[in-house]
């Protein structure tokens, strides 16, 4: 555990967050609304974490990550038979692989560029995808489509959880989030992670040391996209529908804000950022119908004053004395 979650703050956060998240529904059991709300936060955190890896750990700023989030949902509708319950695990696999394949193609185009160009081209490609789905009659246009049959979750004949029970689904998503964190920690601590970080810090030097920088970037892009699609797939299953707004640039934008709010590149900060942002969103929304104004001001203030995000702030607070 110490080896894995290196920093003290990070360990502390994990020991606090996951037990708390496990216990929280017990206090809300009567209220399905809150459990669903928590679930959607947890799902979105999976998405934000994949973006956090891409932007914070690989230095690839993308504004088109929501495309894969949306594709996760649409791919399910596209490949699953309409009136038949398919196996959840098998389709999880299919969707991740398909999204990875799409990311491979998109990545080859996108990664020819870098910096500002990459920001703009990722945004434009995601918009293309957005318009494709919102204009298409087959995919229900702006309204999207409903998932008529939810998948069956049995594995080797054993049903682990029931997708229709919000509580079951919440715990499953929480487990997924934890697994994602472990996965990204493994990746960043691996030999691949070492070179990826080198690529981020100094691509020219890394090329001069004999590494194919493009392939490192591409693999990272593919992995992050596949997990973004996984999050989108969970979202689609939770609400039972998909619509194009999943892939709107606002989805990418707010994910980016959450990731920076949490502390870019810290991975666990993605969870922090998502929880805080969604918490603020929820409470501001109740406070005033013009919550967007407060949110915007908050973001601007954050860029100006609060550069390292919440994770950086906490780390400073807890680990400064040495």
């Amino acid at each position: 555990m110490t080896y894995f979650f290196g920093k003290k703050t990070e360990q502390l956060f994990i020991w606090l967050f996951f037990p708390l998240a496990l216990l929280l529904p017990l206090f809300l059991e009567q209220n399905e609304f809150y459990v669903n709300k928590l679930t959607s936060v947890v799902i979105f955190a999976i998405f934000v974490m994949s973006l956090d890896y891409l932007v914070g750990r690989c230095g690839m700023i993308t504004l088109g990550h929501s495309m894969f989030y949306g594709l996760g949902g649409y791919l399910f509708i596209l490949i699953a038979p309409e009136f038949e319950a398919v196996n959840f695990w098998v389709y999880t696999f299919y969707i991740c692989v398909l999204a990875a394949a799409i990311a491979l193609v998109v990545g080859v185009i996108v990664l020819r560029t870098s910096g500002v160009y990459m920001i703009m081209i990722t945004l434009a490609i995601a918009q293309m995808c957005f318009y494709f789905f919102s204009d298409s009659v087959e995919f229900g246009g702006n309204d999207g489509l409903f998932i008529l049959m939810k998948p069956d979750t049995s594995l080797f004949g054993l049903a682990f959880f029931n997708l229709d029970d919000p509580l079951h689904f919440y715990y499953f998503c929480l487990l997924s989030l934890f697994n994602c964190l472990v996965f990204w920690k493994l990746v960043t601590g691996s030999r691949f992670g070492r070179i990826m970080e080198a690529v981020k810090d100094n691509p020219q030097r890394t090329t001069a040391l004999g590494y194919n920088v493009f392939l490192f970037r591409l693999l990272s892009y593919v992995m992050a996209s596949a997990l973004a699609a996984y999050a989108g797939y969970l979202f689609a299953l939770q609400y039972g529908f998909v619509n194009p707004s999943m892939m709107s640039w606002q989805t990418s934008g707010s994910a980016l804000v959450m990731s920076i709010l949490g502390g870019m590149g810290s991975l666990y900060g993605a969870i922090l950022g998502t929880v805080v942002y969604e918490g603020l969103h929820y409470s501001l929304e109740h406070l005033t119908e013009h919550w967007l104004l407060l949110m915007g001001c908050l973001i601007i203030a954050m860029v100006m004053l609060f550069k390292a995000g919440i994770a950086g702030f906490l780390e400073n607070l807890l680990e400064r004395r040495k």
Binding site: G253, L256, V257, I260, L292, L293, M295, G296, C297, L298, I299, I300, M302, V303, M304
Partner: peptide, 8 residues
Amino acid sequence: LLTIGMIF
């Protein structure tokens, strides 16, 4: 980030 905040 700043300009997204401005859009909001």
